[in-house]
Design a protein around this nucleic acid. Structure first.
Length: 571
DNA sequence: GCCGTTTTCGGCCCGACTGTTTTCAGTCG
């Protein structure tokens, strides 16, 4: 059992304990242990075999014993017993806004409700009204919540949520007076690949008026909650939005607070407390006295920290690094000098090569790599060798007319079932670059899939591995593969890993960027564009790269044209 | 269940809003 699975089990035990109405702090202990494990660099097998679990802060005797059982036997008696005591539908119910462990427990005990379907039916029959602490409004709210969960699963792609949030800011700016400064906060500001709502923080000296105007906006479908300083609404677009309005003086603290993450905030508060400082959304307080900050830079400075960019506020080492002045100089859009992985009408793209090239150069890129699909990708109009010859002639002609710019000939080459590539080596050797990607047979075992990808990495003509996990966010789980082994192989063979910037993929996951970076694997941020607009997706890839602590030197396509020509020639 | 400049017991981050209460528990972020 790997680390990720152990973490999942610990978190689920926490949920189960809450649902069982155990002591709340016991549940929290399991969450803390899961989090501690997540932040721990050491290998889980090593921690267990060398008896080092107890040295991890947050893991005590009881949990260490459970983790050991889990890792050595793949099984945990305590967990299995808990699962038998709590129907799985109860965990599902936690997704319904307004329902937490306590109420779910009541519904289960008093009405015998074990699934969302049963709950919906019970609401329709007005059966919740007979319960103490429940009323008509609560029942209506739960019904609405069920509808929301069924309709959207309550989750949105970063790109969709960000677009909706920016649109909303424009609407607010047009309609609402008296706001001195406003910002998107929450997961969108942190560039999380998936988000469940929009968080907005605004500063105003007329808080109530701003709240009232906000909940009356045309794009607001219904109001979930509305108080003096805070409102929650369902937007017509289907996304929940929280607005928090504070005074001008409170704004920097509130912006930090509502940007999160929750884990980052908790760690910041613990740290501040040790310094004798209290943090809340209204300020930093030492002995009840406000420490004045005019922006977030001041805020971190007051706590003895470097400014921590929002993307990396996940309590994954950023606070410790900021303490030592060792935060990375995160990648910027302007660091990117060119792009690879662009499809054209030769395969499943919709634009001509000339259109894509012109659009890329208009964005200031020095080079663009064209990479249509290879011959086995029937579904995507993969290119037979004859079509490739035509494409190469077209690219050669284009290049003749260019100065200080270049179009590279590439391919997104399918990795076949056995790990071989979709053209012979003779043909592969003629490309400027080769992206090797898995597009079929997703259901292999982890071992088979890893071996398949490792074989592709070992091919001397492969420049980079495309969308390494194959995931489609909110739609398809990535296939199982051993990322540690893949990263090791990439170093050995000098192959780069793609960070696919398409908002449905954002694959390599940012959680692996640090590992790749520490091992010295180059990351290449690619748009995987299928039309001219697709080039704009680079923005999302760069955000995720920042989230993964990447700097310009870690990213292949931050090389300028001369450097990249030399790099590709040396491959 | 974990932890310790509050160290083997008694805490465990902090505050807004809602609904159902008549002073507060539950949920959320």
């Amino acid at each position: 059992m790997n680390k990720k699975q152990v973490i999942d089990v610990l978190n689920e035990i926490g949920l189960l304990l809450e649902l069982k109405e155990e002591l709340p702090f016991k549940a929290r202990a399991y969450y803390n242990a899961a989090r501690a494990l997540e932040l721990e660099d050491a290998d889980i097998d090593e921690l267990v075999s060398q008896n080092k679990l107890r040295q991890v802060k947050g893991i005590g005797e009881a949990i260490a014993k459970k983790i050991t059982e889990l890792v050595t036997t793949g099984h945990l008696e305590y967990y299995e017993r808990l699962k038998k005591e709590v129907p799985p539908g109860l965990i599902e119910m936690l997704k319904i806004p307004g329902l937490g462990p306590k109420r779910i427990q009541t519904l289960y005990k008093k009405l015998g409700i074990t699934t969302i379907g049963e709950l919906e039916y019970a609401c329709i029959e007005n059966r919740l009204l007979e319960l103490e602490g429940f009323g008509k409004r609560t029942q209506e709210k739960i019904l609405k919540g069920i509808e929301y969960v069924k309709r959207y699963q309550g989750q949105f792609l970063y790109s969709d949520a960000k677009a909706a949030a920016e649109q909303l800011l424009i609407e607010i700016g047009d309609v609402i007076d008296g706001i001195s400064v406003i910002s998107i906060a929450g997961g969108i500001r942190r560039c999380k690949e998936i988000t469940k709502d929009i968080d907005i923080v605004a500063a105003s000296e007329n808080q109530q008026e701003v709240i009232d105007a906000f909940v009356a906006l045309p794009s607001v479908e219904s109001i979930i909650a509305s108080g003096d300083t805070k409102a929650s609404v369902h937007l017509r677009s289907g996304i929940n939005t929280d607005l928090r309005v504070v005074s001008n003086l409170q704004y920097p603290y509130a912006l930090h607070h509502f940007t999160g993450s929750k884990e980052h905030n908790t760690a910041m508060r613990h740290r501040a407390k040790r310094m004798g400082i209290k943090i809340n959304e209204y300020g930093l307080f030492k002995n009840e006295e406000l420490i004045k900050c005019s922006d977030e830079h001041d805020f971190f400075k007051a706590l003895g920290l470097q400014y921590i960019p929002p993307e990396i506020r996940e309590n994954m080492g950023e606070i410790e690094a900021a303490e030592e002045g060792k935060l990375p100089d995160l990648l910027k859009s302007s660091d990117i000098k060119g792009i690879f992985h662009v499809h054209t009408a030769y395969s499943d793209g919709s634009a001509t090569i000339t259109d894509m090239v012109n659009a890329a150069f208009a964005k200031g890129y020095e080079y663009i790599g064209i990479s249509d699909h290879s011959q086995s990708a029937f579904y995507a109009g993969g290119l037979k060798p004859e079509a490739l010859m035509r494409q190469w002639r077209e690219i050669d002609e284009l290049n003749e007319s260019l100065r200080a710019r270049k179009v590279f000939k590439g391919i997104e080459c399918d990795i076949l079932l056995d790990g071989s590539l979709d053209y012979d080596d003779e043909l592969l050797s003629k490309f400027d670059f080769v992206i090797a990607s898995v597009h079929s047979h997703f259901n292999l075992s982890k071992e088979q899939m890893t071996a398949r990808i490792l074989r592709a990495i070992a091919n001397p003509y492969v420049t980079m591995i495309g969308h390494v996990s194959g995931r489609l966010l909110l739609a398809r789980q990535g296939y199982e593969c051993d990322m540690d082994a893949i990263i090791e192989a990439c170093i050995e063979y000098g192959v780069a890993l793609e960070l696919n910037a398409n908002p449905h993929r954002l694959d390599l996951d940012w959680r692996y960027c640090g590992l790749a970076k520490s091992k010295g694997v180059k990351i290449v941020i690619n748009p995987d564009a299928h039309n001219v607009d697709g080039l704009n997706d680079m923005e999302y890839g760069i955000g995720i790269a920042r989230k993964g602590w990447l700097e310009a030197k870690d990213v292949l396509n931050s090389m300028n044209l001369d450097e990249i020509i030399a790099y590709l020639a040396a491959r």
